[in-house]
Nucleic acid binder design. Structure first.
Lengths: 194, 194
DNA sequence: CGTTTACACTAGCGCTTGCTTGGTTGACCC
DNA sequence: GGGTCAACCAAGCAAGCGCTAGTGTAAACG
């Protein structure tokens, strides 16, 4: 068993598990299905992961880590105006939602299947990510770009964005960046869309 | 087995099933748990429902029907101004999300567990509900109350509202109506939320 | 060379799952 | 007072579940 996270082999297996989890849901995915997808037998799976739950935790951790990295890079890449940072965060959010779609869908649907320890660990990661949002929204409020309650606004915005995994079609006419810009336009009063 | 929907007994059982489903999730809820919650033995369950999936469909149907009724009543009760109708829809949406919380949480999380026939049937119900929203949003766009793409705006708004089931605490300081009004304020340009 | 390590295998244990079968009960009905 | 019917029960089947134990093997290391 691999105690610490992220041997290269384990990382690849995690990626494949994510695909199956999003197709079937965590509960409906059996260790035998996972093993077959990975090209090994079900017993061999437990050389890499202590149990089934640990696979779930690995999948979610991977996705959340990436979200944090992408958001931080996006913020570092833009100037300090509230508007630019708001756009950057929204775009970054949708970018992760697309590139790590599997992991995020799993996180949204199967979060409660995590055991308490894993949940505590991943909650910290998620809180760090949400803190970025609240910070950007605070700045936008201070500049008068948006109005309302800091807590509610960030919840509403993240809700609207996360909900996109339920209806957004990457093959469709709209790019993720267009979505992000439209959302920001909607909540800023300057909102003269198109 | 009860072929048509809604004998009084079946309705009560459906209500109890909803509670368990939201606690455990559909997959994790066994027919034995359901039976115990209902005060009967697991075998007797199949006198009322053909199989486990039919219980899920009954739960979701109940919730969606109520959402439709409440929204229609709310619209009938207010004047024809776009602003009033927007507020009414948002409030109605959060009202159902609270009073039929179990059913809606189940619908959000376990929709994909429905078999194709049930899904087709319930999709129609859901589409009827969403049509109400799009109609109200069309009117708000026409009046210049909000701006942007009709499709995107309605998706964003419903996302923000549905997401509340993940964080809203009914025991907390905010009433559902306050939430609804704050959201409407956020997306209308008149939004001077104190 | 011998030892270690990573990865995989076979075989199956103990348990739970959704659901079926065949039968019992008690209230209602002409 | 025989017939009907919804509601329930006891018992259990066949399948599938997560996971373990013990073993094989080939590359890496000293």
């Amino acid at each position: 068993m691999n105690v610490m996270n992220e041997s290269p082999r384990r990382k690849e297996l995690t990626r494949q598990a994510a695909q199956l989890f999003v197709q079937e849901g965590f509960d409906r995915t059996t260790v035998r299905m996972l093993a077959q997808e990975m090209g090994i037998k079900s017993g061999s799976l437990f050389h890499h992961f202590r149990d089934k739950q640990e696979i779930l935790a690995a999948v979610i951790e991977e996705g959340t880590q990436n979200a944090l990295i992408i958001a931080r890079e996006a913020l570092a890449r833009c100037d300090s105006s509230a508007s630019a940072r708001l756009h950057a965060m929204a775009r970054a959010h949708l970018e992760t939602l697309l590139t790590d779609r599997s992991a995020h869908v799993v996180a949204l649907y199967d979060w409660r299947r995590l055991d308490p320890e894993a949940r505590a660990h991943l909650s910290h990661l998620r809180d760090a990510y949400e803190a970025l949002w609240e910070q950007v929204i605070d700045a936008a409020l201070a500049e008068g770009l948006i109005h309302g309650d800091r807590f509610l606004v960030s919840r509403f915005v993240m809700g609207a964005l996360n909900w996109t995994v339920r209806w957004y079609d990457p093959e469709g006419p709209r790019t993720p960046d267009e979505l992000a810009d439209e959302l920001v336009a909607m909540i800023t009063r300057s909102g003269s869309a198109d």
